[in-house]
Design a protein around this nucleic acid. Structure first.
Lengths: 334, 334
DNA sequence: CTGAAAGCGCTTACAG
DNA sequence: CTGAAAGCGCTTACAG
């Protein structure tokens, strides 16, 4: 078995209290004892037991992160940012894939509670009232990333979806496009669906284009959905010269579909995406898209959570800047 | 504060030992007490404290996973499989991004030890002697995924890299290609570099093609590297009709570069990748590639680790089948 | 069937 | 500057 604090105390000829003090940099021992203790630690290759420590401190130095899907490029970039910030601050992160399933989510929340995590990050998706209640019962800090909620006690970090969609559409208009379509998420999705559609329409209206005539299809935020929607769009509204796809995977779907149908991008059809996944630079032509700083969002969410854990002070929500990344899929029209 | 086992014992009018028994489904109490206890549990919304339990059981029901990069598509698919299997068996997974940095890796190993994880999965990359030693000192089960090692006590689950590369090359030959190049990883990479290059050359040789004349470039397994290598290749060996890129990101780089240079894929240049990331289906034409069952590898690695943890029996290594996925980037030559 | 008690490996008043 | 002791929330022989 591994050495315990008792073993080092015995070897150093001091009490465990003293060992604990030097290990935790607390005051109260002579330089000589410090050295004796450190020698014993080294000799026994002693490593503290974080579980025992956690039991008395009521702190585990670990946070839980809930994703609707861990394998998506979107989630992995956020996770990357979270992991980075957490590790810098000495926290571990346990990943939970809810698969957008209520039962799994509840199950995970329970596990996280039993494991006494110090805080939770909830990513992309609606924080249901039900979850909020159990979170409240757990009485631990929570922060939202790439989503938001009405609950005042839960800060979020995200981009302004309405404005980002507005800017994507305005960009297309500025480049001379007039017949613009959108492929977005489900209209009833209050986080990433509705606001982007509204932003898109607002941009149209502000530029004197009839917002209700523009086709808006649902691509479910996935590649296949983008392909299907593009196919339908191209059939029903061939006059469209540009499409705003509210997710890069869908945008790539549009590009693939156009290529398959012999429609040149951007010469015949312009496409602007949303997210700026690594994917966006890997297609040809490289995808013009409105960037969300995903890793940064993850980092900031983790930083806020940890600050909340350690200071107890409430943290403010934050809207991070988005940015249209001009690449190769939008052409200029006269 | 949350209720503890003492609270429920008091409310149920029994001892904590009895509460513990019913909670853990151990024998030794009447139906009546069981009900009294369960009622108290419900009334107090009692949740056991896994940290306290872990301290006495010496089991935390959590495993650590080390990745060289958490945000890569490759790692996320493996992670997805691991998370799934782990969650089914009641284990949590903490993710560690080593960033291929020795110091971070050592740091993480130490943290995982202090947090008393029950086992560790080490993904893709060489398990250095140094790591092996600290792992040995920790005395906990380890399994390797998408990599392997010489250490008999550490099982691995991966694909046969040599054979997979061989099959990719043989596929190209079968489709009529004779002037074939490879874009692989660093030749000194014993896991994913050298074996694939050797497999590629073996296939050439077995089919009567001079293996040493075929260009083999290093694309560092990344998109940019694939682009650079493709550019150099196309300049230096324009006679090449097909390239085997030993990683999908690199393959996509080849396709992008070809498109940029006006070289038609697959009409003028055929490309076969390696991995079968989700990416592979998202480009146009969709990428022909040799598939590794990444999620399955993750699942199996987790299953082996957990079996090892729970039974104490050693687990065998496993080579999973690969498969060439015929899609749209390889043409047939006469 | 049930409970008192020891113990898991730490931290932290408290007393000196 | 230092140690004895209590306690964190559980589990598990042991005794009855």
């Amino acid at each position: 078995m591994s050495a315990t604090i008792k073993d080092v105390a015995k070897l150093a000829g001091v009490s465990v209290a003293t060992v604990s003090r030097v290990l935790n940099d607390l005051p109260g021992y002579s330089e000589e004892t410090r050295i004796r203790v450190m020698n014993a630690v080294a000799e026994l290759r002693y490593q503290p037991n974080a579980i025992a420590r956690g039991l008395v401190n009521k702190r585990t130095q670990t946070i839980g992160v809930l994703f609707p899907s861990v394998s998506s490029a979107f989630s992995s970039e956020i996770l990357h940012g979270i992991e980075e910030a957490a590790q810098e601050q000495g926290y571990s992160v346990v990943v939970c894939n809810t698969a957008e399933d209520g039962k799994r989510t509840k199950k995970y929340l329970q596990v996280l509670r039993e494991k006494q995590v110090d805080g939770i990050i909830y990513s992309s998706g609606v924080l249901k009232e039900e979850y909020h209640q159990t979170l409240q019962a757990m009485a631990i800090p929570v922060v939202l990333v790439a989503t938001k909620s009405e609950y005042a006690d839960i800060p979020y970090v995200k981009v302004d979806d309405h404005q980002a969609a507005y800017d994507a559409c305005a960009y297309l208009i500025r480049r001379g496009h007039r017949r613009i379509a959108m492929i977005g998420g489900p209209a009833h999705d209050v986080i990433a669906g509705e606001p982007r559609i509204a932003g898109f329409r607002a941009a149209l209206a502000d530029h004197g284009l009839p917002p209700d005539e523009a086709p808006v299809l649902d691509g479910r935020f996935i590649f296949a959905g983008g392909c299907e929607a593009a196919e339908e769009l191209l059939r029903q509204a061939p006059e469209v010269t540009a499409v705003f796809a509210a997710g890069d995977e869908m945008a790539i779907g549009v590009i693939s579909t156009a290529a398959r149908l012999g429609i040149a991008v951007p010469a015949q059809l312009s496409v602007i995406g949303y997210d700026n996944l690594k994917l966006a630079e890997m297609c040809y032509p490289p995808l013009t898209t409105v960037a969300q700083p995903l890793a940064e969002m993850g980092r900031l969410a983790a930083a806020k959570l940890i600050a909340r854990i350690e200071t107890g002070q409430p943290e403010a929500s934050e809207i991070l800047p988005h940015q249209v990344m001009e690449r190769g899929t939008v052409s200029t029209r006269e």
